[in-house]
């Protein structure tokens, strides 16, 4: 049985990781390669690097960084942030990324999913969806880090993404992101019911219990988290040991 994946997410700005605490033995937590290697050694199953640079120079720096990550990391990694053209995808593939994630640009131009998937394969493409549940109970995808609503309903958009060729869905609930109150497990389970591709759960993890719940009741295939790892609230070996104790299939 394929193991449930634990994926730390690292934000990168102008070529440096942000939000990292000092881990023992790490010279420079701002160094994306060194921090990634630390997580890989700790048992992370994959890594996600998100470019939050707003500038063209920042993007160029990020591509150079992706080359260094590819040289230095022996587990799969996904890169995302600002990918809006086939050329962006090609540039990151050449730099050594195993997968890329697209978000806002795919909502503006859904054909981007088809173009990237048909050129480089579904295994290369993660569709990230930041959705917010409105007062009417409907989940709608948002863009630009959750700041702008779109007309895409979560379930329909996820199915459309799968049909267009996305290989995985990375779903973040903007109602839960940053709250550390746990994931909307029923929504994740409903999404799993409708999709045949893997689902990565993001946003809301505050405890081992939250992650266990989304991987079991929520039927997610992977859990992505940032702050609980970066701030050392829980280490990956400790998290994995506790998930194993709950009979969850973990590497």
């Amino acid at each position: 049985m394929v193991a449930k994946r634990i994926i730390p997410c690292l934000d990168v700005k102008e070529g440096r990781t942000v939000k990292g605490v000092n881990f023992v033995g790490l010279r420079d937590v701002g160094d994306a390669v060194e921090l990634g290697q630390h997580y890989a050694r700790s048992g992370a199953d994959e890594l996600v690097y998100l470019d939050i640079s707003a500038t063209r120079e920042g993007r160029a720096t990020f591509t150079k960084l992706v080359e260094r990550i590819s040289d230095g990391i022996n587990i799969p990694f996904t890169v995302g942030g600002g990918i809006s053209t086939l050329e962006d995808a090609a540039r990151l593939l050449d730099a050594g990324a195993d997968k890329i994630s697209v978000n806002s640009a795919a909502i503006a131009d859904p054909g981007l999913i088809d173009r990237i998937a048909s050129r480089y394969g579904s295994q290369f493409l993660v569709l990230a969806i930041d959705a917010r549940q409105g007062a009417d109970g409907i989940w709608r995808a948002t863009t630009h880090g959750g700041s702008r609503p779109s007309n895409k309903e979560l379930f329909a958009w996820a199915r459309e993404g799968q049909e267009r060729g996305a290989g995985e869905i990375l779903f973040t609930s903007m109602n839960h992101d940053g709250t550390k109150q746990g994931y909307p497990c029923d929504t994740f389970a409903a999404l799993a019911e409708q999709l045949s591709i893997p689902i990565i759960a993001s946003g809301g993890a505050g405890s081992v219990e939250d992650i266990a719940a989304v991987l079991t009741r929520g039927r997610a295939d992977a859990a992505l988290a940032a702050s609980i790892f970066h701030f050392g609230e829980i280490s990956i070996p400790e998290l994995k040991a506790q998930l194993k104790q709950r009979n969850i299939c973990i590497r």
Binding site: M1, V2, A192, E193, S196, I197, P198, A222
Partner: peptide, 11 residues
Amino acid sequence: PELKVPHMGWN
């Protein structure tokens, strides 16, 4: 519903 394709991850 129980078998995701692609088979992706550690096994």
